[in-house]
Simulated assay, not measured.
Amino acid sequence: MEALDNRTALITGASSGIGRAFAEEYASEGVNLLIVARRNDPLQLLASQLRSKYGIDVQVWVGDLAIPETPQSLFDYLIEQNIQVDILVNNAGFGVPGNLCEVEWNRHRETIEVMGAAPVRLCYLIAPAMQEKRSGRIINVSSLAAFVPPHAGGTLYYPLKSYLAQFSIALRAEMKPSGVHVTAVCPGFTRTGFQAAAGGTVESVTIPKWMWSEPNDVAATAIRAVEKNQPICIPGFFNKAVALFFKIIPGSLGRKIVGE
């Protein structure tokens, strides 16, 4: 893998879970960081720990990507501070339990902003400098849900993750001539606390423990994948098997399996 030291990675949703794991994995490679999330205290604690352990530069930027203006504000900060982003990790995301019409619209709007609009906007703002430099890495954190038929209660989450995976494939094709790599990482069930925060799901209760992934394993696998410019990265044999299974069976059968 190409040496990563002296580069800078911007990671959204970095205060916990897979985002935090990306920060840890890149820090261990000597990559400087700009970590972004809504909560200042966890970011500051993580920044302090990574500076002390790896001797890298870690900057903190607090912002809510559910606010449409936030990606532009973040980009303006990069310009003001003369920060060149070599690696962009669009990780921020969350799930909303409940059926579409049972949840207030503003929560759905936030979901669309964080997992749909914000990643695309950040790519739009940051990728041109990577193209000009003819070097860069973009990782968009999608989900195994991108390959599984959506079910009741997953009205937005499943389609948005599928959208992000497809967007990444198209962006990769656009970026390839300039040497910029783009990968969508699609983890399955990962020990991040995400399911509990989202209200839990039937799947998270019934999936055996051995089928769950660790956040750092997901991040490390994605980093290797983007260095190889793989369009889609599905960490774990079980998750690969699930994606393949739903790809080859008839759609009607897949919908029955997930409880249409």
Rank of each mutant, 00 (worst) to 15 (best):
E80L: 08
R39H: 10
N40K: 15
D64Y: 04
P42T: 14
L50A: 09
G55T: 05
L33N: 02
W61V: 08
D41I: 03
E69M: 07
Y54K: 02
I79R: 14
S16R: 08
V62T: 12
S28E: 15
V36H: 15
A23V: 04
W61G: 06
D57I: 04
P71C: 11
A47Y: 01
L45F: 01
Y26G: 09
A37P: 07
I79E: 15
I35A: 05
A47W: 02
S73F: 01
P42I: 04
R20C: 01
F22S: 02
L78T: 15
D57V: 06
L78I: 13
A21Q: 07
P42F: 06
Q59V: 06
K53N: 10
F22H: 03
E69Y: 01
G19P: 01
I35D: 01
E24Q: 06
I18L: 03
I35K: 05
P42L: 07
Q59N: 11
G30T: 03
P71R: 10
D57M: 07
E24C: 03
Q81L: 09
L34K: 02
G63R: 10
G30Q: 12
G30R: 10
G63I: 10
V62S: 10
A21V: 08
A23D: 02
P42S: 13
L78C: 13
Q72P: 00
L45H: 12
Q81P: 00
V58Q: 06
L74Q: 09
K53W: 07
Y26M: 08
R51G: 07
V62C: 14
A23L: 11
R20L: 09
L33S: 08
V62W: 04
R38D: 12
S52N: 15
L65R: 04
N40C: 00
R20I: 01
Q44Y: 01
A23I: 04
V58H: 05
E25I: 13
Q72V: 08
V31M: 07
D64G: 08
G30N: 09
S48N: 12
L65G: 05
I67V: 14
R20A: 06
E25R: 14
R39L: 06
K53D: 12
L50C: 10
D41Y: 01
Q72W: 06
R38P: 03
L74E: 06
Y26W: 09
G30C: 06
D57H: 08
L74N: 09
R38F: 13
R20V: 00
A27G: 11
V62Y: 10
I67D: 12
I35F: 05
R39D: 14
L50R: 04
G30V: 09
D57E: 14
L45Y: 01
T70N: 05
N40R: 15
L65E: 02
I35P: 01
L74W: 03
S16P: 00
V36A: 12
P71I: 09
D64F: 08
L34P: 00
A47G: 14
L43R: 10
Q49S: 13
R20D: 00
E80V: 04
A27V: 06
I18H: 02
N82T: 03
I79V: 15
E29Y: 03
N40L: 11
I56M: 07
Q59T: 12
D64I: 04
Q44D: 02
T70V: 08
E69P: 00
L46F: 10
A23H: 09
G55H: 06
Q59I: 05
D64K: 08
A47S: 14
V31F: 05
G55P: 06
